[in-house]
Nucleic acid binder design. Sequence first.
DNA 1: CGAGCGATTGAAAAGACTCAACCACCGTGG
DNA 2: CCACGGTGGTTGAGTCTTTTCAATCGCTCG
Lengths: 231, 231
Amino acid sequence: MLDKSHKHVSCEKCAVRENGIFSNLVNGEVCEMDNHKSCHYYKKNQSLFVEGSYPRGVFCVNHGKVKIYALGDEGKEQIVHIAKEGEVVGFRSMLSGEPYKLSASTLEDANICFVAKDDFLNMLDTNTGMRNAVLKELSKELGERAIFITNLAQKSVRERLAYSLMLLSDIYGEDPINLTREDLANFVGTATETLIRLLKDFKEEGLIDVQTRKVFIANMDGIINLAGGHR
Amino acid sequence: MLDKSHKHVSCEKCAVRENGIFSNLVNGEVCEMDNHKSCHYYKKNQSLFVEGSYPRGVFCVNHGKVKIYALGDEGKEQIVHIAKEGEVVGFRSMLSGEPYKLSASTLEDANICFVAKDDFLNMLDTNTGMRNAVLKELSKELGERAIFITNLAQKSVRERLAYSLMLLSDIYGEDPINLTREDLANFVGTATETLIRLLKDFKEEGLIDVQTRKVFIANMDGIINLAGGHR
DNA sequence: CGAGCGATTGAAAAGACTCAACCACCGTGG
DNA sequence: CCACGGTGGTTGAGTCTTTTCAATCGCTCG
């Protein structure tokens, strides 16, 4: 499934393309993009881009998970988003014309394609469907971040962990959540030690199962309920 | 300056239009919009839209400030953004096709124009400049929210207050910040009592001046420094 | 003049963080 | 093959920021 060469991945045959903003391309456009993009194999913990630098293009995740995070004043990461297969990352800063406000790096070994800035902007100009997908995606994320802000401001760490597990289970799908304790803590927005203690509580309460670093949701209703009762 | 009738405000002559996404319209388009929009006078604390309902159009703030907020599980507001003159609010949910994730209401008496959904979307389709402005605006806000999330997760309330005052001083410009203690607390993301105590501290430290509910920045460098050292 | 909201203060409680130590697993190199 | 070092995980204890609750005050508005 995961190809360690830098072999070209065909967009046309890309099974995960439907997950992201490239889902709206018609055949000709897919071929066009195929010709312009490059594909790369990334090892775990490799950096895609860092805060402060300028975007040269966008990254399309073919396989693997990517964390998008900000660095706080004391160097602690705040993970703002975890991109899964099919998602396109790094186009926000490109559109706002600013340097990256966030950094991105792989959470696992990954295959990721790269589309250069001009090619991407060009597609955006000419392709209505994609443009709408981008608008929609940005707006949706904006709403999600507003909710995340509210959670951070008003909920306890315990509730936030439940909420985070909910989000992560969407991202990981059938697979168990597979993050270091530190990354999970940086996603929830808490200290690693606090997170570990809460995971233990959750396990004792039958909400989750834990196998080393893998977290399985054992009682989704309980989790949802703790998280605030919806979705 | 503030007209209490519902008299039509001319977009062409609107001095604050440059602050928002309507800044890129050419003359004909401005007239077009003028013909389609309606203008309304709002009293303080009037609602523009509420979480859960479906967008029918967008609101363009001509005069006054508008708070955009989410309601937490216990009914506490989390203010995510304060829109000033010229800003257009309410288009995010419209673009994502979802019901409003946030609510909006006036913080003071205000004049606000309304552009219907179809007219707005139509302009978005035909006007490249505006489309790019919207893309840029969404992306920029997304970045701002990421930073806000990081601040909430990692900074103390004290530091967050400083950061918030920085943001608010941009929004209020020459005017003093003029919010209830509760609104200010809901912007910072803390309890009202905590906020009051910190305001007192800030005043004693010469960072701010306070006249009843009005807050003046007395030492901007000090505030910026406390907030994390950069603007 | 009274009702009521917003602002303020004090005291106590709780949640979360920090610090420090320790464990466990894994890959490496001797 | 085993000792070693390093990273990631875990636990305990103490501290501290922040919240909560309760009471009081002051001002405005009808």
